[in-house]
Design a protein around this nucleic acid. Structure first.
Ligand code: MN
Ligand code: MN
Ligand code: ZN
Ligand code: ZN
Lengths: 144, 144
DNA sequence: CCACTGGTTGAGAACGACTCTCAGTATCAC
DNA sequence: GTGATACTGAGAGTCGTTCTCAACCAGTGG
């Protein structure tokens, strides 16, 4: 299970992990996949990502603190490694009165593939082929 | 409906909006609330927020670009107005190849109330009383 | 007035992503 | 082997949201 995650370069949803694990263990049930993912997350061996588009959670074996850029066309998420300045966190904490423990940041836009296939973006991104989320669910990226 | 949103200083979920609208229009159905919220969002008169905790979407009549600090204890979300430097966006775009159109940023931590009532945080935040999300759903704020 | 027409509405069914329950099974300790 | 214990998968349940569809409400023309 962790192997599957480590081997994944995309950021698979639980359903995608299930599908992949099933190839080597066809008798596994989805409950076990959810249980195991939760365990990996709670023991710090994986990250659960909520990319702010209201879609299913994604899982990431890369536990270093990092952010993502999410493609509005095909849903692909790529790693972004560019920490927010510390001073900013302190400033936010001071102004809000919150005890800030962390932050989630994601950029939205179009990936190179979807920029190319300008029209009907939600179909590009073929490549090695992670499932594409067709149903875009309304005006996204308005968030936060 | 927009009035209800404008009058709200918290960031109500669709269910909370429904509940409040119902006070003046008791015959309204939830389908209409969802439909209307979607319309407000798609016409730019409200924002749909996905605060990255996998919880229900929240709605915000404040359409200025702004971010939020979310309390891990009681779920409260307060506005943060502290734009990320432009240079950073450009840098991200350059390094990722994405055409970046925006970003979503949320800070996590404990609100002043929940800092006070240290133990059992998920019960504080009384105040004017938006519903509190008890079931915390596992290790949050690991995200992104 | 009143029959048509098209846009809204609300009730309830359907849906997707999860989470729970529970009986069956594998594991280990004796 | 026998029993205690943990783990598993099937399926039911939950929650937030969207869909479907019949009833309803404008208007419009007559
Ligand atoms: Mn990542
Ligand atoms: Mn706000
Ligand atoms: Zn794309
Ligand atoms: Zn709080």
């Amino acid at each position: 299970m962790l192997e599957v995650l480590r081997a994944a370069d995309d950021h698979p949803t639980a359903a995608e992990v299930y599908e992949r694990v099933r190839r080597s263990s066809p008798r596994i049930g989805s409950a076990t996949v959810y249980r195991t993912l939760a365990l990996l997350v709670s023991t710090g061996r994986a990250l659960e990502l909520n990319l702010g588009d209201g879609a299913a959670a994604r899982y990431d074996a890369n536990t270093r603190r990092h952010d993502h850029a999410v493609c509005d066309g095909c849903g692909r998420a790529v790693d972004i490694d560019h920490p927010v300045p510390d001073g900013m966190m302190a400033e936010i904490a001071r102004r809000s009165g919150f005890a800030i423990t962390g932050y989630d940041l994601q950029f939205r836009g179009l990936c190179p593939d979807c920029q190319a296939n300008g029209s009907d973006p939600a179909r590009a991104a073929g490549g090695t082929g992670p499932t594409v989320n067709t149903h875009a669910k309304g005006a996204l990226h308005a968030e936060a």
